[in-house]
Every structure is written in structure tokens, then in C-alpha cells.
Amino acid sequence: MKNVLISIIRGPRKCSLLKLALLPLPLLLITGCPSGKQAGDGAVTNKLVIKGSNTIGEELAPRLIAEFKKEHPKVTIELESKATSYGLANLRYGSCDIAAASRTPTTLEVQENGSQGVELNEYVIGSYAVAVIVNPANPVKNLTKEQVRDVFTGVITNWQAIGGPDKPIRLCIRDAISGTHLGFQDMALENRPYGSSHGLFTNYTAIADAIAKDADCIGYTDIKSATSTSVSAISINGIHPSTETVNKGSYPYHRVLRLYTDKARESQQVKDFISFVIATKGQKNVDQLGFVTRP
């Protein structure tokens, strides 16, 4: 790996050149001029750069950005969604203003931030939660986490094994390119592959509609859609999925969503965007997209 000399623009002034360092290749590709930064001619830009979690970036961030820009049309916002670790790394090296995260930073990430003089500010914006659903005619109303894992990975293939009728289980899951497909696999399946007997759907509504028509199906959807009378939400280890159980942290299939900033580099654009997201208008959009609003 080569030694590389790089410079980064931080805050309202240019930073000094970083020391010669051995940097991982992905970090050598980190570029951009985050908000309130001086451009080459010394002019301050109105650009806001957000990088990080695909759970936030797939649907939620684009909606929040679009709504925010209605009130702040002069602010340019760039969004790049890959992973929480990617956002935190970019924030550490001054290549984004906000790191979108679907988990808290690891001990190593906190240490790495500290080594770069970065003190994180954390803002909870809501939660991503998934409810397991069945047809209302299905007698199964509660499952353990282990049973859910075994059903969706194909270890359990008949309803009789978990208190239902002697019929085959049919899985209804999101398409493989969706963040939800991977998110549920991580939260509920311990990252094991899905069972082979499944149907793929492009959205939660399609999953709920399929289950409403077939008593042998099981799938998942957002908490809000799970309250429909056309489907029945399954309790997990005796805990029913709801806004209350998610915000209390007792319902297992959820992730708290956060935005992280570098405390020393919070521009006015950053403050305005975060204030919008956690206020009533922003939280309305969080709710409309099926996420759980912040406590």
C-alpha cells in the first residue's frame, strides 16, 4: 500500500496537510466539499453532504431531503448510501457533514474518531422496525425468535411444527435488492439465507395483500401496515410490535436510526436540516414511510 499525502477542507478554513499516512484504499477515494466549506475561490458553498446507512438512504433520506429543500431551496444536498461504517469513516476524514447510521459506532470507530479529533454529536431520528405478519385466520399468534429464524430460513416448513394446521408454510419476503431484505436477514435470521419456498415482492403493501389472500403465508411489513385488519401481527417472545415496544427497546426486530455530526464542524445547514428532521414536519414523513417516530 502506498504512502499518500492528502489535504482536507474542514470548517470555514482549510485544514493543514494531514500527515503521511497509510490509509485503507476506500478512504483514499473519499472526496467532496461538505457544507459551509470554502471553495477554491474562497466562496462559502451551500452544500450539505450526507453519507452512510442504506436503511436510511433507500427511502427515508430522499423524502426528508426533498421536503427540506422546499423550505431551503438554495441548499444543495448530496446523498450517498452504502453502510453506517462508510458514513462514519467519511465524517471522520471531513468528507461529509452528516453520517447516517442504523447502529451505534463500534468501540474501534469511537477510538478512530477520537484520534482524528472528532467528537460525535448524536441525533435520534426514529426507528426502522419490522413486524412478522400472517393471515388473520391463522391460529399462530406468538413465536419465539428461534422459531421465526427457523421458519424464514426453511428449517421449519410446516405450520403444525409451530402450533398451526398441517399445511406447508409459504414465505413472502422483499426482493433481494431492497434494504429490508437484508435488514430482516440480519435482525431475525442471524444472516442465514432465506428458505427456498418464498415469493419475492417489491414493497410491503404487496406482501400484506398476498398474505391477506392466503392463510398459509407468512411475511413481514412495517409496524404501521401490520395494524391493518387484513393481516395479523405476530408477537415475538410475547412482545407485540408497536410504536411503544419499539421505543422502549423491548421489541426485538428494530434498529434505532441516528444522524451523527462532528461537533466542531456543525454548519448552519447541518443544524437546519437536523432540526427539520426531528421536528413535527420531518417526523410526519418518518411516520408516512412506515418508520417509527422518535420518542
Rank of each mutant, 00 (worst) to 15 (best):
W159F: 02
L64I: 02
E71W: 01
I125D: 03
Q111N: 13
R255N: 02
P139D: 13
Q185T: 06
Y220N: 04
V118E: 04
V277E: 04
G42T: 07
D41G: 12
P24M: 09
V49N: 08
P34D: 12
R10W: 11
K82N: 12
D209Y: 13
Q269A: 08
L23R: 13
D272A: 12
I6F: 05
H198C: 03
E190L: 09
C96E: 06
L88G: 15
T205M: 14
A188K: 02
T261L: 00
A210N: 13
M1H: 12
N3W: 10
L22Y: 11
I30C: 10
E78Q: 03
D209S: 12
R149Q: 07
S232G: 05
D214F: 12
T106P: 14
K224N: 03
Q38N: 09
R103N: 03
H254R: 03
F68R: 10
T31I: 10
I207D: 11
S230W: 11
A137Y: 13
Y128A: 01
V148E: 04
L28F: 12
Q283E: 08
A39F: 14
L257E: 00
K74T: 06
K74Q: 09
K37F: 03
S228E: 06
D97C: 07
L25G: 14
N138W: 06
L289E: 01
Q38D: 05
A206D: 13
D216V: 08
Q147T: 01
P168S: 02
I162V: 04
N138A: 06
Q268L: 15
V110L: 15
V246F: 00
S232F: 10
A279P: 03
P12N: 14
E122L: 05
Y251V: 03
A83D: 13
D41N: 15
E122V: 03
T221D: 00
L120Y: 05
D262V: 08
K145L: 04
D287I: 01
K271N: 08
S228R: 06
K14R: 15
A66M: 04
L79Q: 11
Y86V: 15
I177C: 12
G164T: 01
F273D: 05
S127C: 07
S85I: 15
G52I: 09
L79K: 10
V286K: 02
D222H: 07
K14E: 15
L29E: 09
Y194W: 04
L22A: 12
G154I: 02
Q268T: 14
N285E: 04
I274S: 00
T293K: 07
F201N: 11
S197R: 07
S235F: 05
K51D: 01
A21G: 08
C15Y: 07
A83H: 13
D186K: 08
A99I: 07
